[in-house]
Design a protein around this nucleic acid. Structure first.
Lengths: 210, 210
DNA sequence: CATTAAACGGAGCATCCGCTCCTGTTGTGC
DNA sequence: GCACAACAGGAGCGGATGCTCCGTTTAATG
């Protein structure tokens, strides 16, 4: 396996959860992360830091000792979520025998999760997208699924991992914009794209430059 | 023709360009719109209003007399741009005889324009997307192109105008996210989607509800 | 020109928000 | 139990930013 299943995001939680810290500090850190997760999911990344401090029953000083910057907190929390989604979707995809169903199921699952967590996705986009480690993990999962499809000749020739990743982000936008008015319509677009990805379409794709 | 080619956006320019106003006021209004267009395109919608005032050689008071709110100015300017793009793309599409080429050309043109005007698109998204009048106009253009394709049996059965509109917004995201690193890669996605839209795919699309 | 109302300009107001500082408190090792 | 370092907490700083107020200027009119 080329991707490290153990790629956590410890490198983002600035004062990493080291065991030698005081018990109350540990508790507070956990409370902050939990509260921030809730608040961000409810109100998006634009919320006042004070609200997070209030909700987690912690002072501003405490919050900022644990996370030197609002962005750092935001990123930590959001990526934790994102990683969890990715892990779920990956496991399910690996458990699916048919390569094509594994790939389509992966899309279906990640996107429907995003539909259920709009605010998180929006915040994630607003902070410049997930970190490179998250992106890399996503890439390797997709690459794995893609390879399986290619091996059995189900995927249109020439489709790259980048293409699939880009498609994922693109459909993510569709998920967001239909969330209110026409929930689930993104599935139609997903179907259309997947049909365009099947090996029944053999015309070469345009090159990736301007 | 079901769409009104004359749908302008005069209803957004708060103190509408009425002829009876003083010449300097007229000049200033034009200067503000032009400067705002430049500034927004360069720096996005988050810029300080002072910068727009400075660039247009006008005081804050003047600016706010013409546009009672920053958002109003932003919307006016952005929609003016958007309308112009739409008009161009529409004209070219109408001049294309082959229905399929008209549709694909429309996508190609609107998206490549967006690629050249990222900041505008981003601001437009940030302000909650184009106004309903813009959206309606876009809808009717797409509907026209869709109907032409359906008439000659080139479009996958069951594809709605909403689907195409959603696809457009979705690909727009792809345009933005590839603008730096892999410019033009969105064309591959467009091609994939369009292939999925061709009548060669006859499987019914899923319903639009959850 | 004189008059006047419309238009101008920009200093300043009010607010929001990320972050810090410093005083008081609490956990931990001896 | 004591001393001390680590931690908690929240008032407040700084600066960014949308918007206003009002004294000044200027175009239009006769």
């Amino acid at each position: 396996m080329s991707y490290a299943g153990a790629v956590t995001l410890a490198d983002h939680a600035s004062p990493a959860p080291r065991p030698g810290r005081r018990a109350d500090a540990e508790r507070n850190r956990a409370a902050i992360i939990e509260a921030a997760g809730e608040v961000f999911a409810e109100c998006g990344g634009g919320v006042d830091v004070r609200e997070i401090a209030r909700r987690s029953g912690v002072g501003m000083g405490t919050l900022y000792r644990h996370f030197p910057t609002k962005d750092e907190l935001l990123v930590t929390v959001l990526e934790q979520q994102f990683e969890a989604w990715l892990t779920d979707a990956h496991q399910q995809a690996m458990a699916t025998e048919d390569p094509w169903r594994a790939l389509t199921g992966f899309f279906e699952q990640t996107l429907s999760t995003q539909a259920r967590n709009r605010a998180v996705v929006e915040s994630l986009t607003a902070t410049g997208g997930p970190s490179s480690s998250c992106v890399e993990r996503c890439y390797s999962i997709i690459d794995q699924l893609r390879t399986r499809c290619v091996d059995v000749g189900m995927l249109r020739p020439g489709v790259t991992t980048e293409d699939l990743f880009l498609l994922s982000g693109s459909l993510s936008q569709a998920v967001l914009s239909t969330a209110d008015s026409r929930p689930g319509q993104w599935r139609r677009l997903l179907r259309i794209s997947l049909d365009g990805l099947s090996s029944r379409n053999s015309e070469p794709l345009p090159a990736g430059t301007i």
